[in-house]
């Protein structure tokens, strides 16, 4: 795998002005994705996962906008360029796959027309050539009898097949980066694995970087190289998938792991994280997770933690800070006693 970095997101802030004040669904998020790498982005609903994806392609719904940080594609900034230049990047250099394949396609156009349209917006080729490429794209995503199915309408495909078409559309102009926003959530379980395997295979062959947004830890474990955990718009932990999954450091990630059923089939009752994610209007001072965190120390209620390397991952948590090590140790001791 090459070390070339395709996408860099630095201190990204997305804000929505509302009558009751400014909301921040994405708050100083940092990550990058290398060529051919699959980065998983996990978090609860409303944690800012999809908003990150929308920010990268410049499709945040009004009145929201990027108010801080940088987004760079191959070292070019793309967060402050004109709409017209951004439009030429969308689809050409960054492809997107959305959650619901049933509603992602225009019901009144054949899938071939939609693929050809995408190709011809970005590449100067003839209609006949575009048609050939559309058929090839459908074949590549495993649509049987692609040369005749190219003239079929979306409603003539099943859900899984439609998501294949959506993937073909996202990959049609051979982008460097794919942002897949919950691509399998709306599909049958039996089809989910097929679609993920397909996405993984195609991106691997082409060296396409993937940002995979999901809340399914199973998908994360199977598909991704690295994983970023978002909580209330902030990055809690980021690192190689196997390290985050087997040895999580942030209390939120630990809780998330404990609440995911293990494939080894232990029949113990799953634990859950008490409480729920704070409303964007009422994010507490300090660490956003402090009210639900069982290990919270005094610093957690005062200062915003920043990402620091812990073991093999980067974690935003005061428990691992040198200055608070002693207090943290004290805290866990008393908790152990209480538990016993």
């Amino acid at each position: 795998m090459s070390e070339e970095i395709v996408l860099t997101v630095e201190d990204l802030i997305v804000e929505f002005p509302t009558r009751k004040g400014i909301l921040r669904p994405v708050d100083r998020v940092n990550f990058n994705i290398k060529k051919g790498e699959i980065l998983g982005v996990v978090g609860e609903s409303g944690a800012g996962k999809s908003m990150c994806g929308s920010a990268i392609v410049g499709l945040i719904d009004r009145p929201g906008r990027i108010t801080g940080g940088e987004i760079r594609l191959q070292n070019e900034r793309i967060d402050n360029i004109s709409h017209e230049r951004m439009r030429k990047i969308r689809g050409r250099r960054i492809g997107m796959v959305f959650q619901d394949p049933l509603t992602s396609l225009n019901p009144l156009m054949t899938v071939g027309e939609q693929i050809m349209e995408t190709i011809r917006v970005h590449l100067k080729i003839s209609e006949a050539e575009a048609r050939q490429r559309a058929i090839a794209a459908l074949e590549e995503v495993g649509i049987p009898a692609a040369s005749s199915r190219v003239d079929a309408y979306p409603h003539q495909f099943s859900g899984g097949m439609r998501q294949r078409v959506v993937i073909a559309l996202a990959l049609a102009a051979e982008p460097e980066l794919i942002i897949a926003d919950e691509p399998t959530t709306a599909l049958d379980v039996s089809v989910q694995a097929q679609i993920m395997a397909l996405l993984k295979k195609l991106c691997h062959e082409r060296g396409t970087a993937v940002m995979l947004i999901t809340h399914d830890m199973g998908v994360i474990a199977e598909t991704t190289d690295r994983v970023a955990v978002l909580y209330a718009g902030r990055l809690a932990e980021i690192g190689p998938t196997k390290d985050v999954l087997s040895n999580p450091s942030h209390p939120y990630t630990i809780g998330l792991m404990a609440s995911t059923p293990s494939p080894t089939g232990s029949t113990e009752r799953l634990s859950q994280i008490p409480g729920s994610m704070p409303n964007l209007r009422a994010i507490p001072q300090g660490c956003a997770f402090n009210q639900r965190c069982t290990k919270a120390i005094s610093a957690c209620f005062k200062h915003l933690p920043i990402l620091e390397p812990v073991d093999k991952t980067d974690v935003a948590c005061w428990l691992y800070d040198e200055a608070y090590k002693d207090e943290a140790a004290e805290q866990s001791k008393t908790q152990l006693k209480e538990g016993a």
């Binding site: 969308r90 050409r92 959305f98 995408t118 102009a173």
Partner: peptide, 9 residues
């Protein structure tokens, strides 16, 4: 939304 994400004018 998807059409926008595909870069259509």
């Amino acid at each position: 939304r998807f059409a926008r994400a595909r870069g259509l004018s």
